Simulated scan of single mutants.
Amino acid sequence: MDAIERAGGQSALATKLTKTAKESISHARVWNWINRGKKAPAELCPLIERVTGVACERLRPDVDWAYLRSTVASELTQPIPSATPKEASHG
């Protein structure tokens, strides 16, 4: 897996992911992705991409990343509902 090489090894990737993820990613979990034929979870691929530079499309070619990226992009460009302005009371 290119991401592991770019990160500096399995432990280094696990450490980098743990520092930026909302959960602890163990060395054993990364090992399983490689040695037990398991794939990195799709939800972690954007994080792996961020810390290693290896595109999600290379990590999980079975996921329709173009669709997911466009969906997220359209959600990010939706206007934010304006808050109701608080009335200032000047006594």
Score class of each variant (00 low, 15 high):
residue 2 D to N: 15
residue 3 A to H: 04
residue 4 I to D: 00
residue 4 I to V: 13
residue 5 E to A: 11
residue 6 R to W: 07
residue 7 A to G: 02
residue 7 A to Q: 03
residue 7 A to P: 00
residue 7 A to V: 00
residue 8 G to T: 01
residue 8 G to K: 02
residue 8 G to F: 03
residue 10 Q to T: 08
residue 10 Q to R: 15
residue 12 A to Q: 10
residue 12 A to E: 08
residue 14 A to F: 00
residue 14 A to K: 02
residue 15 T to Q: 14
residue 16 K to R: 14
residue 16 K to L: 05
residue 17 L to H: 00
residue 17 L to V: 01
residue 17 L to I: 02
residue 20 T to M: 15
residue 20 T to L: 15
residue 22 K to V: 08
residue 22 K to R: 15
residue 23 E to F: 14
residue 23 E to L: 14
residue 23 E to T: 15
residue 25 I to Q: 04
residue 26 S to V: 00
residue 26 S to Q: 05
residue 26 S to N: 04
residue 27 H to F: 05
residue 27 H to Q: 15
residue 27 H to L: 10
residue 28 A to R: 11
residue 29 R to C: 04
residue 29 R to F: 05
residue 30 V to R: 00
residue 31 W to V: 07
residue 33 W to L: 03
residue 36 R to F: 03
residue 36 R to C: 09
residue 39 K to L: 15
residue 41 P to H: 03
residue 41 P to V: 00
residue 41 P to M: 04
residue 42 A to K: 02
residue 42 A to N: 05
residue 42 A to V: 12
residue 43 E to Q: 07
residue 44 L to H: 05
residue 45 C to R: 00
residue 46 P to Y: 06
residue 46 P to M: 03
residue 46 P to L: 05
residue 48 I to E: 01
residue 48 I to Y: 00
residue 49 E to N: 06
residue 50 R to Q: 13
residue 50 R to E: 09
residue 50 R to I: 01
residue 50 R to P: 03
residue 50 R to D: 10
residue 51 V to F: 07
residue 52 T to P: 07
residue 52 T to Y: 01
residue 53 G to Q: 05
residue 53 G to H: 01
residue 53 G to S: 06
residue 54 V to I: 09
residue 56 C to S: 11
residue 56 C to R: 02
residue 57 E to H: 03
residue 57 E to S: 10
residue 58 R to E: 01
residue 58 R to D: 01
residue 59 L to N: 03
residue 62 D to F: 02
residue 62 D to N: 06
residue 63 V to A: 03
residue 64 D to A: 08
residue 64 D to M: 04
residue 64 D to G: 03
residue 66 A to F: 04
residue 66 A to L: 09
residue 67 Y to C: 10
residue 69 R to G: 03
residue 72 V to D: 14
residue 72 V to N: 11
residue 73 A to N: 11
residue 74 S to I: 07
residue 74 S to A: 10
residue 75 E to Y: 10
residue 76 L to A: 13
residue 76 L to D: 15
residue 77 T to L: 12
residue 78 Q to N: 08
residue 78 Q to P: 03
residue 79 P to N: 07
residue 79 P to W: 02
residue 80 I to E: 14
residue 81 P to E: 09
residue 81 P to F: 06
residue 82 S to L: 12
residue 83 A to L: 13
residue 83 A to V: 09
residue 83 A to N: 11
residue 83 A to H: 12
residue 84 T to A: 13
residue 84 T to I: 12
residue 84 T to F: 10
residue 86 K to D: 06
residue 86 K to I: 12
residue 87 E to D: 13
residue 88 A to S: 14
residue 88 A to C: 11
residue 88 A to W: 11
residue 89 S to N: 13
residue 90 H to I: 12
residue 91 G to K: 15
residue 91 G to L: 12
